[in-house]
Design a protein around this nucleic acid. Sequence first.
DNA 1: TCGAAGGGTGACATTGGTGTGAGGGTCAAT
DNA 2: ATTGACCCTCACACCAATGTCACCCTTCGA
Lengths: 125, 125
Amino acid sequence: MRIGELSTHTRTPVRLLRYYEEQGLIASDRLPNGYRDYEEYVVDRVLQVRGLLDAGLPTRIIKQILPCLNTPRTIHMPYVTPDMVATLEHERDRMAEKIECLTKNHRAITDYLDAARRDTRASYR
Amino acid sequence: MRIGELSTHTRTPVRLLRYYEEQGLIASDRLPNGYRDYEEYVVDRVLQVRGLLDAGLPTRIIKQILPCLNTPRTIHMPYVTPDMVATLEHERDRMAEKIECLTKNHRAITDYLDAARRDTRASYR
DNA sequence: TCGAAGGGTGACATTGGTGTGAGGGTCAAT
DNA sequence: ATTGACCCTCACACCAATGTCACCCTTCGA
């Protein structure tokens, strides 16, 4: 698949796809004419990257953890350095914090909206 | 409390406290000499702001939704414009997406680490 | 064969959060 | 009276993610 198609499939500007590649987050082959050529799975990959990016993780970190998240479950895990383990644990904990924070505020918004709705209905009676 | 104290309490650079104020996320009185003077509750506020910021929300949005999250449960909700409701619903949904994405990846990291640990133990036997 | 659509690289601009420094006040302790 | 810690404002700098533009090439259909 060429970059335009990938772009529409992922609703991601072409510019960013090239940027993600430059940052080592996605890979592409090249057609004889120099055009990028993507495999099917890259679509999911891009969506995952965007999700993580949108959740506030920098590309630097995403690049580090992506290889560990890749869904075609690696059969035998190659040499995980203690360094890598530390990074992963750290990021895992940071993610947990973010989740907690978001969850708390998500609930607060939900509660607020509920209350507002009740209020609105009440004012009609 | 003056800015230095707030800074240590929240482990937040003074620079950023002033920035958050400039963005309308926190408020301060002024002492006769021009120093900023914060009330106790601002500590929590700063932590909340940082959490949201760290989770990827821009100050613009935080500023909009903060008034709705403020814990001293407002007794009667003042005129919530339909506009505001729409914004809140939108942000709520975006937060839900982020939570989902982070949760998924958090689990993936956790699983990966578990597998790696098993692998390591196995190689000792 | 020509034009439009799509692709390539490279470079500069912008935005938001943050760092840092200059230049200058306040105040408490010595 | 001086020093040192703390505060003020203003301004420039930085980085990462993105937008945008210039300039050139390839493919394909009218």
